[in-house]
Write a protein that binds this DNA or RNA. Sequence first.
DNA 1: TTCAGTGCAAAAGATTTGCATAAAT
DNA 2: ATTTATGCAAATCTTTTGCACTGAA
Lengths: 136, 136
Amino acid sequence: MSDLLRRLRGRGWRMTSQRRVVAEVLDGDHVHLTADEVHLRAAARLPEISRATVYNTLGELVALGEVVEVSTVGRAKRYDPNARNPHQHLVCSGCGTVRDVHPGGNALGDLPEEERFGFAVGSVEITYRGLCPGCA
Amino acid sequence: MSDLLRRLRGRGWRMTSQRRVVAEVLDGDHVHLTADEVHLRAAARLPEISRATVYNTLGELVALGEVVEVSTVGRAKRYDPNARNPHQHLVCSGCGTVRDVHPGGNALGDLPEEERFGFAVGSVEITYRGLCPGCA
DNA sequence: TTCAGTGCAAAAGATTTGCATAAAT
DNA sequence: ATTTATGCAAATCTTTTGCACTGAA
């Protein structure tokens, strides 16, 4: 069973065949799928699964903190199940492909208090943009 | 005349009343408008300007490197004319408001070569997410 | 049994596109 | 005169919503 699924079970998440398939599709450490790609792969195993359910389920996983939404410029959001291991993203401006990077040396410190303007800062997202070998 | 407009003139950008108005709306150092907001403000001065023209113009300004698209999670893109001064963004997860931040001390170094996977990295985007005082 | 989850289809929001017309150089 | 930009309306893509129905606990 996938790690994600095991964790969700442990948290008392109500299980259905649709939810199981979505969680299975999202298993792995370098997965960055769009909602539509998740639906496509889930439907390969469970043909009757609807887009609405995929969106609902993804939204819940995000709310639970088990999946992170990767922001995009114009393109569809991508969902990253590797929420436990902080990391950053290298995104191709051509095809939208996402790669994980872990630049050990230059991790970003917190935003200093005097730069927060009263915001309750919860997360930092760092994205490197450029062209992948295939698109260059 | 706005700085942006002056620069565009200098680059031989073909000028029209629509383009002028869009450039004027985008003038300033802490502007983060959506395409729709740009259209709204532009239309206040030039009622016949169309959304398509606003989108076209914004796309060109981005291609010229004069304006930066601020990525969002789900929401409409925002356009930031402050492309000359590298800075970062504090984004409210509640209302989508964007604030500029310049955390001097912890600027991010480049992504090391061995972490680039053959990508031609062109830019880094750093976004702090959280709730603004109003939404908290 | 009960309540949360699902599917469907329609709606909404953001952005793009095709094409005839208008305007800048 | 020539070339490029504009406006309109329709189309596309992504995501959300309302509601009756199904299935997990």
